[in-house]
Write a protein that binds this DNA or RNA. Structure first.
Lengths: 227, 227
DNA sequence: AGACGTCCGACTGGATCCAATGAAGGAGAA
DNA sequence: TTCTCCTTCATTGGATCCAGTCGGACGTCT
């Protein structure tokens, strides 16, 4: 047995870079769920061999963004309604905890920026809303000095990102302003320093989204139609 | 864009098999946190090339059991007290949810088996307790028809397994029977069909462990001494 | 004697080549 | 005409080989 100290650099690993750009593309919607990913295409785009590409795909698989099948290929992960609800159930329980840890550390500048993002969301279209909404919530979590929790939460956001896109479009079509209201309540509670109330607002915010999701199974049917 | 249906086989992937045995060994304590893992050793043991070994290490890294560093090597992951507490914080929030989903699906046979495991734990030493405790709790979750939640919970158990080992040894030394009491209360609530009470018992059970963990920083110092 | 610089060894990361598996298309028979 | 079987091709998984990088040890200089 040994006990060396693992250094903390991570440069020189090509797979992570490939994974980064592919992850960003998947989140942006360039490759919708169900899209086939060919290793050679990625290798050609990055002018490397297929080996770092495999590494990148394994990494994204572990994040739940890509589904690998032996001797067959890789696809952008697809969620069923039930799976998506599970992820929202987890979000509903742990994001308030993370918010509770980060709320006392938010600076006035952070709060102003949150207000700014809330303003931007008011007049945004669906795609813009999606970007600002993500920035808004992740900013509320940013000051938390956690590792495991923060990574877990970001992973949950990434895995559900595409379905939030479809959902946000539906909410926009209905002129549903509940989310805006929640965001305002959240910032107000944070400004008062009432972390507990902020956590409750957030929990209701996520739960409401989950319940609304159940009423839009067509978001997942549309995916299934691609099969 | 394409929309083929990803098949659901996973045979023919050598890396998963290697990962399985290494995971089991890490959980059994054969390789304590901080142990260096050489790719060639693993390759020789499994009579394969280093390539499937790399794949296995990446997989275990994504599970949090192994820490990889570019151009340096792989080590069995080590947790700080703060990180371990974060994981327990997550467990405390999501395992009651999972229990709530599985409790109504537990059969009388399951409940009898839970009683049997609780009996076994009463007279067990620390290592046996660890095994039975894991079996006990995972059995209470087993009937749940979830994918994301179940996998997440198993991952949390795996990542904290080694530190639970140290903690259980400490609890045994103090003749602390709180865990046994919780297990009995849990089975009793499940037998009554009171899923809500069972969830509350579980939440307190995990929270108590987390708080007790804070009082045993030496578990993590002992690790650090290896450095 | 201690500290610094250089050299060497060992390990990991990447590229190329080969084997195996699955899928699609075409030919033949009912 | 349609269903089935077989052949062929595309794509992935694995093995071997080579290059890059880090750590340690030895020797030398102050």
């Amino acid at each position: 047995m040994s006990g060396a100290l693992p250094p903390m650099r991570d440069h020189g690993r090509a797979g992570t870079g490939i994974a980064d750009v592919l992850r960003e593309e998947i989140l942006r919607g360039v490759h919708p769920p169900g899209t086939r990913i060919r290793q050679e295409d990625l290798a050609a785009r990055h002018t490397t061999s297929r080996l770092p590409v495999r590494e990148a795909l394994r990494l994204l698989e572990s994040e739940g963004l890509v589904t690998l099948v032996a001797n067959s290929g890789a696809w952008v992960s697809r969620l069923t309604l039930a799976e998506c609800e599970e992820l929202y159930l987890v979000r509903e329980r742990i994001e308030p905890v993370l918010l509770g840890l980060s709320a006392p550390l938010l600076t006035p500048a952070d709060l102003d920026e949150l207000d700014g993002l809330a303003d931007l969301m008011e007049g945004a279209d669906a795609e813009e809303f999606l970007v600002h909404d993500r920035a808004f919530h992740l900013l509320t979590y940013a000051p938390a000095r956690t590792v495991m929790l923060s990574d877990t939460v970001v992973g949950l956001w990434n895995r559900t990102h595409h379905y939030r896109r479809a959902f946000v479009a539906a909410a926009h079509a209905r002129h549903d302003g509940a989310a805006h209201h929640d965001h305002r309540l959240l910032v107000a509670a944070l400004r008062r320093g009432d972390a507990e109330e902020a956590a409750h607002v957030l929990e209701r915010h996520i739960r409401r989204t989950r319940i609304e999701l159940e009423r839009h199974p067509e978001i997942f049917d549309a995916d299934a139609a691609l099969r």
